[in-house]
């Protein structure tokens, strides 16, 4: 009897744990894109105050509002989804055209079908979105969705938490399958970490969210410790100057938003 009670208690506890670790999203709150099978979750109406730089690079506050809400891809676009796009369109990515040593087909580490696709330029993600009938999120949309109505540095709190992020310290040296960490309150996975995500800022692409190559923390030159993911989710919007970072790399992926009708 005692043993049976223990088993029941254990099973009950496990049930609670499972429910809290991966809360099922009500089906009416999920839209599946028939083109690539990507699930989108509803991002409710609202806004946030961003920081923008003026012509003289002086920061000022600017409220950004999304009055109608929007749908955003629950995960980063995967290798499998991107392969379907290439098979149907014959698309050749920027790194392939430039004869880069590594490409999404041949990354420098092993990737399974459920990993985020990487080694993409901004033009590649625009082409994918066009094929899938969706859009690449604007930087403001991405930030708003990432924060999910929270006011802390990260959507879970103010300091790094391994339960939410694949970073260099816990992912090792490669991407990981999507949606294995806890989602944000609106059901989005890997908004921070795993792959960097291309977003649109005016006419250019910018990267947000950090990746598995980012350190969770490291000691800076002055001896102080820093948590670089804080910069990846900072509220300052890109000022429109061209991205000077390495254009395609082993950690540059993306997710999509549904087109507004």
């Amino acid at each position: 009897m005692f043993r049976a009670t223990l088993v029941l208690l254990f099973a009950g506890g496990f049930g609670v744990l499972v429910a809290s670790a991966a809360d099922p999203i009500p089906q009416e709150k999920v839209w599946r894109n028939p083109k690539d099978g990507m699930e989108f979750v509803w991002i409710p109406a609202g806004g946030f105050t961003a920081e923008v730089l003026d012509k003289d690079k002086k920061p000022s506050a600017q409220h950004v509002e999304f009055p109608g809400g929007f749908w955003m891809g629950r995960t980063e676009v995967t290798v499998k989804q991107f392969r379907r796009f290439v098979e149907q369109t014959g698309h050749v990515t920027e790194p392939e055209k430039e004869k880069n040593r590594w490409t999404w087909k041949r990354p420098w580490f092993e990737q399974a079908d459920d990993h985020p696709v990487i080694y993409l330029g901004y033009s590649d993600v625009l082409k994918y979105a066009e094929w899938a009938g969706v859009d690449v999120p604007t930087e403001a949309q991405w930030l708003y969705a990432c924060r999910a109505g929270t006011s802390t540095v990260f959507y879970w709190g103010d300091t790094m938490d391994d339960r939410h992020v694949w970073h260099r310290g816990n992912a090792g040296d490669a991407t990981r399958p999507v949606a294995k960490k806890q989602s944000n309150p609106w059901g989005l996975y890997d908004m921070i970490g795993n792959a960097h995500e291309w977003c649109t800022s005016g006419k250019i692409g910018v990267l947000r969210g950090g990746s598995f190559t980012r350190c969770d923390r490291y000691r800076f030159l002055d001896g102080n410790w820093t948590e670089p993911f804080i910069w990846e989710v900072g509220l300052r919007l890109h000022d429109g100057s061209p991205l000077t970072q390495y254009p395609w790399d082993d950690d540059r992926g993306f997710r999509c938003v549904k087109r507004t009708e």
Binding site: R168, D173, T213, R214, C215, P228, Q245, D249
Partner: peptide
Amino acid sequence: RKLLMCNNASH
């Protein structure tokens, strides 16, 4: 990997 990696975003 027996490699060294820079700690910044461009790694």
